[in-house]
Simulated scan of single mutants.
Amino acid sequence: MKKIALALTAIAAMTGSASAADLAARPYVKAPMVAPVANWTGFYIFGGAGGGLSNSDQSIQTNPGAVPLTITQRQGGSGWFGTVGAGYDWQFNSTWVAGVFADGQFGSIRATLQDPINGFTGNQKLEDSWAAGVRLGWLVAPNVLSYVNGGYSGAHFGGTTFTTLSGAATGIHTNSYNRNGWFVGGGVENSLNIFGISSPGWFMKTEYRSAFYDTKTINELTAANASNGFDIRANHWNQTISTSLVYRFNWTGPVVAKY
């Protein structure tokens, strides 16, 4: 009986040891990395094109007496332009982004310049302008920013060669000049990672802007650059819509989690 008990004890011990040896160590599995949250903080550059409308409130006065001869009349025009610029944004939390930027515009937005007293008419062109300002945006989605902006602007307006209303030459012209003012606007900027296309750092923005420039007294001049005795008193209000391609240098938008 003792021999049987000892044999059973030995078998049980051997079976337990074998079972423990057969238990392999759990395989190590690396925890998934959390995909980084989109971050708009950083520098960016952009370039694009668009169209614009120009409005100008004008009145005629004598020179040098500056006696108003006409009531204010509004003239308008339209045209196209290109734009380039750069900026820097700060993302404060998951919702708000603020930034600073500067840009320049160049092209041909034309508007009518007219002297109804003498029967003169001509075209004046906004040849180029620049702007520097700030913007504040709200994230509609991690890679879609809706924003408003505003700031300081300057513009260069070209000279005008007048003709009669029938198109005949008058020999009267105006010189080009610069004006300063301010602007407000807004737009939407979104990542181009759409439709299954991977474009890290590339964005597109569409923006509306309204710019207001200081009033200018424009001298009507003869071929010898002498005054003909009349001035045009005018201000300028320009509205533009543009679409630009944007590149953000340190975009850390959402990526697929790695394992």
Rank of each mutant, 00 (worst) to 15 (best):
L8M: 05
A18Q: 02
S19M: 15
A21R: 06
A21K: 05
L23M: 15
A24H: 11
Y28T: 11
P32I: 13
A35E: 09
P36I: 14
W40T: 12
G42P: 07
Y44G: 02
G48C: 04
G50T: 15
G52P: 07
I60H: 13
N63K: 11
P64C: 08
P64S: 08
G65P: 00
L69G: 09
L69F: 14
Q73K: 08
S78H: 12
W90C: 01
F106P: 00
L113I: 06
Q114R: 06
Q114W: 04
I117Q: 05
G119D: 00
T121Y: 03
G122R: 05
G122W: 10
G122C: 06
E127S: 12
D128N: 05
S129W: 06
G133A: 10
V140A: 14
N143D: 15
S146L: 15
G151D: 07
Y152A: 05
G154I: 11
T161M: 05
T161F: 11
F162S: 02
L165C: 00
I172R: 11
I172G: 02
H173D: 01
N175F: 12
N178I: 09
R179V: 13
N180T: 08
W182H: 01
G186Y: 12
S199P: 00
F203H: 07
F203M: 09
K205V: 05
K205F: 08
R209A: 05
Y213N: 01
T215L: 14
T217D: 12
I218C: 02
L221N: 03
A223L: 14
N228E: 04
F230A: 02
N235H: 14
N238E: 04
I241A: 06
S242G: 07
L245S: 04
Y247C: 01
R248S: 07
N250R: 00
N250K: 01
T252Q: 10
V256G: 01
A257C: 07
